[in-house]
Nucleic acid binder design. Structure first.
Length: 265
DNA sequence: ATGCCCACGACACGTGGA
């Protein structure tokens, strides 16, 4: 069966609800990983999402962060929070098993720390978070099942993933340490969905609200789907819904979607 | 060299985003 899995940093789910519902209806995405909810669980617009035909797992937080998984198929075995540091209370990781007809897959919604400014404690927090993700994913890969890690990674993997590389040299998103940790993650055996189907430069997923970044196409590619071998073998297509950025009251990110053909296990 | 814009909290501007 053909299944569409997407990631979308909405930059406040309450501010983006109308745009999100409209996009869900158009895209007909089956599973959607959301980031930057910016609200606690009780304030999440649960009814509107359920009315649109989705099951729901939410890991919210007041004001900042917050991740969710929407699914037209049942959601089980939910893990909220990235393991590896009991002190870390930031809501940036949510993982669940989705029961497709005839086969189960595992999906994670990821909001990786930004890490700016360099020199603050935020950059080591970012790198530490990436190390914890690395360790956790190592364990997940032992299942040898379809695994999709979708989210806002806050990493520009290569210079071709931004319009103006020189503008990002002192930014946490493009630091050698950030890119090295990103590559180390992929070297566990993960396939990046977009790069599996395209070598094109200029495939952006984020345009800043400031300085006419959208109008100038001054973007960066930081929203990614990483796939286990079993998921990568089932990949049939990838799409960036760039047009969403040009609508009324947009998020600064746009959705990235991947289509899979999953055979019954 | 810096801010531009946007969202949040509980209303004024500070914090955070990327």
């Amino acid at each position: 069966m053909l299944v569409t899995i997407a990631t979308f940093n909405v930059n406040s789910v309450r501010q983006r609800l109308d745009a999100l519902i409209a996009w869900l209806g158009e895209s007909k995405a089956d599973i959607v990983c959301l980031q930057e909810l910016k609200c606690e669980d009780h304030a999440f617009p649960r009814q509107a999402i359920e009315d649109a035909g989705y099951h729901l797992a939410v890991h919210g937080q007041k004001t900042f962060n917050g991740v969710a998984i929407l699914s037209k198929f049942p959601i089980d075995d939910v893990l909220a929070g990235l393991p590896g540091d009991a002190e870390d209370q930031q809501a940036r990781y949510l993982e669940a098993v989705i029961s497709l007809p005839g086969r189960a897959i595992r999906v994670a919604s990821i909001y990786l720390p930004n890490g700016n400014p360099l020199g603050s404690d935020k950059f080591p927090y970012k790198l530490g978070w990436m190390k914890r993700l690395h360790t956790h994913v190592q364990g997940l890969l032992l299942h040898e099942d379809p695994l999709i890690l979708a989210g806002d990674y806050n990493v520009i993997p290569e210079d071709r993933d931004c319009r103006d590389p020189a503008a990002w040299t002192n930014d946490a998103l493009a630091q050698p340490e950030s890119r090295q940790a990103w590559r180390a993650l992929t070297h566990l055996g993960l396939t990046e969905a977009l790069r599996a189907i395209s070598d094109d430069a200029g495939r952006y997923t984020f345009w800043d609200y400031q300085a006419g970044a959208w109008q100038r196409d001054n973007g960066i590619r930081i929203d990614h789907l990483l796939l286990s071998p079993q998921a990568a073998d089932s990949l049939r297509g990838v799409r960036i819904d760039k047009h969403v950025r040009g609508r009324e009251k947009p998020s600064d990110h746009v959705p990235v979607l991947a289509q899979f053909e999953f055979a019954a296990a």
